[in-house]
């Protein structure tokens, strides 16, 4: 889709993640939840790709697949020249130095029995990056980088506020100097004023360390703020991918249009034409035939229920999977 030039850090090709569902009887054919069903994108060095979609669209599964926290059923994930899905367990463990993740929930992503210092030192100890005095120096440096103080070192997670916990999670992710970080709803659980602090921190770190982010979120405003490009997911597929500006100003896919219009207005007197979608997300075990969105699409045509649209380039940096574009 995007040109595969050398500046690309990560390239994902036709990624699939089908979870088996326990079937009703021992003899029945197992069903699969098609959480991710053929997703391709690429992320350049220092770039942030936003991945947006509603709960159950498979965006988190994409993030976890890239780090092999879950094993995708098919596809390729190339970090520079290496397809990380081909690596052995041990080789993959080494690769974790380069790929990290920041989780959504700062309450359950930190071990309640460890101190802040122990939490941040874990990756450093795992890879024997530093020990003794060198280790403490590195931890203090990391604390400083994410805006935590020395006096926080010995505290337990429950003694921190939500924002501070998220800073701890970020320090842990940054400890090994990764090149690529998945932010899985990293600011969604935070209050607005704290959310702004964390977004700023993530953007500062990106600038200082030249990181690439996959920024997964359901919040269009946040994604727009931090991302260079945005991919919109619906029921396991990317329906539209473009630079930030085009997605917002010129959304092509009816689903993206609905998403953009559903964002609450900034001012009560602002007139906003809302596209209110009917119904709910269909089940990913048995997705609709044809275009997966046709059951809720206000512009569905006959063809949409039979032929699945392929993602096509709409303009220079803008691709859409919709029959309306032909």
């Amino acid at each position: 889709m995007m040109d595969g030039s050398d500046s690309m850090l990560l390239e994902v090709n036709d990624l699939q993640m089908h979870y088996p569902v326990r079937s009703r009887s021992w003899f029945a054919k197992p069903d699969y939840v098609r959480a991710v069903d053929g997703v391709s994108f690429s992320i350049a060095k220092g770039e942030t790709l936003g991945l947006i979609g509603e709960s159950g669209c498979g965006k988190s599964s994409v993030g976890r697949s890239l780090l092999r926290l879950i094993t995708p059923t098919a596809g390729k994930v190339r970090l520079e020249d290496v397809n990380i899905l081909d690596l052995s367990k041990r080789e993959m463990r080494d690769r974790r130095r380069e790929m990290q993740i920041i989780f959504q929930d700062p309450f359950s992503s930190l071990d309640p029995r460890l101190t802040a210092e122990q939490i941040v030192s874990e990756p450093l100890v795992n890879f024997k990056v530093a020990k003794g005095r060198e280790l403490s120096r590195r931890i203090e440096e990391l604390f400083d980088q994410v805006g935590l103080q020395k006096q926080h070192l010995k505290r337990f997670p429950h003694e921190f506020s939500g924002g501070q916990r998220q800073r701890l999670g970020i320090a842990r992710a940054m400890a090994l100097n990764p090149r690529f970080v998945v932010c899985d709803e990293a600011v969604s659980a935070l209050d607005v004023s704290v959310q702004a602090q964390i977004i700023n921190l993530l953007m500062d770190l990106q600038e200082q360390l030249g990181l690439s982010y996959l920024f997964i979120s359901h919040d269009l405003a946040v994604v727009e703020h931090i991302s260079d490009r945005v991919a919109v997911m619906y029921l396991g597929k990317i329906v539209e991918i473009a630079d930030c500006h085009s997605i917002l100003q010129n959304p092509q896919h009816p689903y993206t249009q609905a998403l953009v219009s559903a964002v609450p207005r900034r001012h009560p007197s602002q007139k906003k034409e809302k596209i209110i979608l009917k119904g709910d997300l269909p089940s990913a075990t048995n997705p609709p035939k044809g275009c997966r969105f046709h059951t809720r699409c206000p512009m569905a045509m006959e063809r949409c229920s039979t032929v699945e649209p392929i993602i096509k380039r709409f303009s220079d940096d803008h691709a859409v999977a919709c029959h309306l574009i032909d």
Partner: peptide
């Protein structure tokens, strides 16, 4: 503090949010 939808300009690096 909340990011403003539509504040992104093409090819302009994003400003920090007011925290």
């Amino acid at each position: 503090a909340g990011p403003r939808l539509g504040s992104a300009m093409a090819d302009v690096k994003k400003a920090r949010l007011r925290e």
